Simulated assay, not measured.
Amino acid sequence: MDIRDQKNSPIQAGDIVYVIVRNPHAQDVANIQEAAVVRDPEQSGHLNLFLYETHYPLNDEIAVYRTEEEAEQAYQYYFGSSGEGEFYG
């Protein structure tokens, strides 16, 4: 499986990436979170995001950013204000 980030670079196990996470209890609250890319422990050849001590499938539905700066730009675009101060990585 070849998952790519926003700049179309291949994501590999061992990479540290950034994602924007929405609070499931308050949809108007989101923050930038650092996540590790790891091999799926249950499906050989698949990758997961390891975030909050949990494995999440890494697929084309998740926006992944290589740098915190890229994630900040996306946060600003989608939420209209800086995610600065809301990063919990």
Rank of each mutant, 00 (worst) to 15 (best):
H55S: 08
V29D: 03
I20H: 05
L49G: 09
E42M: 12
Q43W: 00
P57Y: 10
I32T: 04
R22N: 05
H25P: 01
H25E: 10
Y52M: 13
E53D: 15
Y18S: 04
V38E: 01
L49P: 12
N31P: 01
A26R: 11
S44P: 05
I20A: 10
A26M: 10
T54F: 14
A36W: 01
E53C: 15
Y52P: 03
F50S: 06
A36F: 08
A26D: 04
I11D: 11
E42L: 11
P24W: 06
Q12G: 08
E34W: 07
R39G: 07
R39D: 10
P24K: 09
N59R: 07
R22W: 07
H46T: 15
P10C: 04
H55Y: 09
D28R: 02
P57T: 12
F50E: 09
V37K: 06
G45C: 06
N31R: 08
A13H: 02
G45P: 10
L49C: 05
N59G: 04
A26F: 09
P41I: 11
P57C: 02
L49Y: 06
H55D: 08
A26K: 11
V17G: 07
D28P: 01
H46E: 15
Q43S: 10
V19I: 08
A26L: 11
L51F: 00
A30I: 06
R39V: 05
I16P: 00
L51Y: 00
R22L: 07
R22P: 07
T54R: 14
D15W: 01
H55V: 03
R39C: 07
P41W: 05
D40A: 02
A30L: 04
L51Q: 00
T54S: 13
T54V: 11
N23M: 02
N23G: 03
V19E: 03
P41V: 08
V21P: 01
